[in-house]
Amino acid sequence: MAGKVIVITSGKGGVGKTTTTANIGTALALMDKRVCLIDADIGLRNLDVVMGLENRIVYDIVDVVEGNCRLEQALIRDKRNSSLFLLPAAQTRDKTAVTPYQMQELTESLKEEMDYVLVDSPAGIEQGFKNAISGAERAIIVTTPEVSAIRDADRIIGLLETEGLKNPEVIINRIRQNMVDKGDMMGIDDMIEILAINLLGVVPEDENIVISTNRGEPIVLKADKSRAGLAFQNIARRIDGEELPLMSLERDTLINKLKRIVGLS
C-alpha cells in the first residue's frame, strides 16, 4: 500500500496552514484512512499544540533523521483517533537540521504504512519550505482573501511548478461572506481568476476555530456544529477523490444571491 504525500503550504504566515493540516488530517482519519501528519516547521512547531498532543512528545523528526530513535518511536498516536499519527518537529533546533533528501526518505517510508501523509510546511520559501515539498507528490496552497496572501500564494505556485509539483490546488480560508457581499472582500471567483488554479475548497471565517485551537481539538470533530468544520470535512472528501460540489456556505447559490438582492434574507 503506497499512500499519497501531500504538502500544505502558503508562502505567507498566519493564513491557517497548521489548522488546515490538523483538520484535513483528522477528517481523513475519521473516514477510516490511515494518516500521518508531519510538522515540517522545525524550530517553531505548532501542529502538536493544535492537535492537543504537545505533552506526549518524546522524540521528534530531528531525532529520527539523526538516528536517535526509530521512526515508529517518534510517531505520536492521536488521542481521539487510532489511525491518525503525528511526527512532531523539533522545537530546539533549526531548519537546517533536516535536509530535503532526508525528508524524502522519511515520507517514502511513511507512505508505505499510510493512506495519506500530510506535510505542514513552514511559512517562507527558504530551506524549511524546500524540505516540506521535497517528498510531496501533491500540493495544497492555503490562502486568505487578502492582497498579500494571494501574492505569496502566486509566488508559491510558481516555485512549486519549478520543483515539478504541477497542478497545485488552493484552499481559500477565512472568507467572510457578508464582506464579499458588500464588495469589501475579494470573492472566490476573483481569486481563482487571478491565481488560475483549481479550487479545492473554501473555509468561512469561524470564531469556533479559536475555541477549538484553545482546546487542542480540531474543529472537524464538531463538523455538525460549525461551518468551518463542515468545510474542512468536505475538503477531505474531495482530497479522497469524491466529486463534491461547493456547498451553499462555501459558495452562494444564485437563489441566495437573488434573495439578498430583493431583501428576503
Binding site: 487578502e146 464588495g183 476573483d190 487571478i194
Partner: peptide
C-alpha cells in the same frame, strides 16, 4: 468603488 475591486486591481 468597492474596496475589493481596488484589491483586485492592485493584485493584478
Amino acid at each position: 468603488e468597492p474596496s475589493k475591486n481596488i484589491a483586485k486591481e492592485r493584485l493584478q
